[in-house]
Design a protein around this nucleic acid. Structure first.
Lengths: 235, 235
DNA sequence: CTCAAATTATGCTATCAAACATAAAATTAA
DNA sequence: TTAATTTTATGTTTGATAGCATAATTTGAG
């Protein structure tokens, strides 16, 4: 963990962010350039909280972030896992609402914010860009609806297997081609899969006993992807 | 139920649809006018199926529609309840995907379709309209995420109470100010609330015994909104 | 109208997952 | 380092909800 503040190369962060937008005009790039601010967050720090007012479009330039909602009985539900380079918190911004989830850094992270009105001004004059974003949000709505069904209908093993597959698809593997490139606590894994921590631990051990995965602390190695997918599909 | 095809006043349907869009230019209205087709569906008929390819923007002009996904173990999950005048199936259209849910008429319904390319052409040149739609979809994504949490974390009574409140907010009351203006089977109510039909029947009877609602076949009269909301909030 | 099918109702049983308890191991702080 | 705290692990109990069975009622088709 870095002791003092981390050096942020704003120029490269800016280029990274712009790379997410299709066909920006020079004057639009300039507006973004003049309305972007960066910030460093250490592992475990909160980037924004459920209920906060969005100040702009938040871009995750470095580090992984979990987004979660506080559940009815204290149990959190992770609703999204973000990776760099990508946006977080845009749903609330575009819906003109307060944040509906809390964003927490899972690793040291660099985040930049494009000031709200500057960005919305670009959108109001760029239908292509707005349509591009609409497509992303519509795709995400599809994921969310699917998730509702699987989280409510699959059994514990199916839900956990699906989460592992989801993590594989989101973050990929380490160089060995087997170890998930994300290191979550059992509690986070539980909150992602809608189960208690004990059940996440138990079920994970079960998968390990069956030889589907291998565990080493928070390292999860997927040994048998086919069987994992079958467990997920069968519910 | 009308025996033969129902007479559809295309002109008024067209005006109804355009009323959902802000500030349409005359030439845009003209494009829509020339690319709209109408169809009548009887109660119980399928408007489109999960997996079908969207042919355009579908507008529900008359009648109520349920949208559901087939669940893992045969149990369906209702993901949206649509009312006139409003759109259905737009998520798939904007995400450029096949439909992710099936749309079924709960009553005799009139539906019109604005041909896909004609409509997308308008969007590509109208950032204000696209932004307006983006806002709607972002708002709906918020609902969907909320729903995931409540459906997974609330107990049966809380889920059913929430569904009744949702139906009240969506369809409102009959003239008596108490009877829900939508008549669902117990199975639909169960599929909306993520529970078995038996449990929907049982829990509904429980609410009636407690004097929170009054039942008369599919008529549901909400007698005590405050208590119903408390049941929903407590989970 | 008459019969068949679907829906609603209710009781009983089985089971999955939560809750609780305890302890070992790992991490963090002093 | 040691002590405190958090995380992980595992066993047992409890409880909510699904599953099944049966019957009454309603709806719809012919």
């Amino acid at each position: 963990m870095s002791r003092h503040s981390y050096h942020i190369d704003i120029e490269s962060v800016f280029e990274g962010v712009c790379g997410l937008f299709p066909n920006l005009k020079p004057e639009e790039r300039e507006i973004i350039r003049n309305n972007i601010t960066c910030q460093f967050y250490r592992k475990g720090e909160i980037i924004y909280k459920e209920g906060d007012v969005p100040q702009g479009l938040v871009c995750l330039s470095k580090g992984k972030v979990k987004l979660y909602k506080e559940g009815v009985g204290g149990r959190d539900q992770i609703v999204r896992m973000a990776k760099p380079i990508g946006f977080i918190g845009y749903r609330a911004l575009f819906a003109d609402e307060n944040y509906s989830a809390t964003a927490e850094a899972l690793e040291d992270a660099v985040v930049c914010i494009i000031e709200k009105e500057a960005f919305m001004g670009i959108l109001r004059n760029n239908a292509e860009l707005t349509l591009h974003i609409l497509k992303s949000v519509a795709t995400e709505l599809g994921f969310s609806t699917n998730r509702t069904v699987t989280l409510t209908q699959k059994h514990i093993r199916g839900r956990l297997a699906e989460s592992l597959i989801f993590l594989r698809d989101t973050y990929g593997f380490e160089d060995d081609g087997k170890t998930l490139k994300v290191y979550l606590s059992r509690e986070d894994l539980a909150n992602l899969s809608n189960m208690t921590t004990s059940n996440a631990i138990r079920t994970l051990s079960g998968f390990a006993d069956e030889g589907v995965i291998e565990l080493d602390g928070r390292r999860i190695k997927i040994l048998d992807q086919y069987r994992l997918e079958r467990i997920s599909d069968l519910g």
